[in-house]
Amino acid sequence: MINSQEASAALMEIESLSRLVRQSVFYRHASTMLILWGVATFIGYLLSFFAPAAAPVIWAVVIVAGVICAIIIGALNKKREGVSTFDARATAAFIAFVAFGCLWSIVFGNMAPRQIAAFWTTYFMLPYVMTGFWFGRVFVVIGMSVIALTLLGYFLAGPWFTLWMAVVNGGGLLLGGLWMRRS
């Protein structure tokens, strides 16, 4: 039989491993979504740079395509691992989050396209930063980096801002996703 210190050390080891495994599983699922939305936003900004007048249509198509791909990836995950990654509360929270953004950027806000791009990017990075407080500092780093680079581009990139956002926002999410997949 072991003493209470040894028992306590064993329990701490179990708790530490459990946390690592849960984080690893979360990273694996989240990295796929980061890569997906990284590619989607990169394409959205790139097309918007070359055809600014069509930006609203481009973004509507990009977002709908992204959501459809996310649903397909979720279904494939469920089939492969036998575990559903769909979370009704998380989905409801996401819808409320987007609705709030639409309310202030479309209904109340009188924003220029440049401001809309900066608003949605920094707004979407907010939950990344907050998620990081619970699930891993990498989210905080990704979120804060993209916000800082967005602000830098907003004030300094001039007419290249949309292209800057393709690299910073799309590329940032893509690199973050690839890094998480590797870790």
């Binding site: 491993l17 495994v21 849960r22 036998g82």
Partner: peptide
Amino acid sequence: LKIMAALNALHPTQGLDFPRLKKLT
């Protein structure tokens, strides 16, 4: 103990591949 702790943190239908288990433990 580490192996069982890692596997028990997963959903009952989920497993860990050898390289991931090696890295975790």
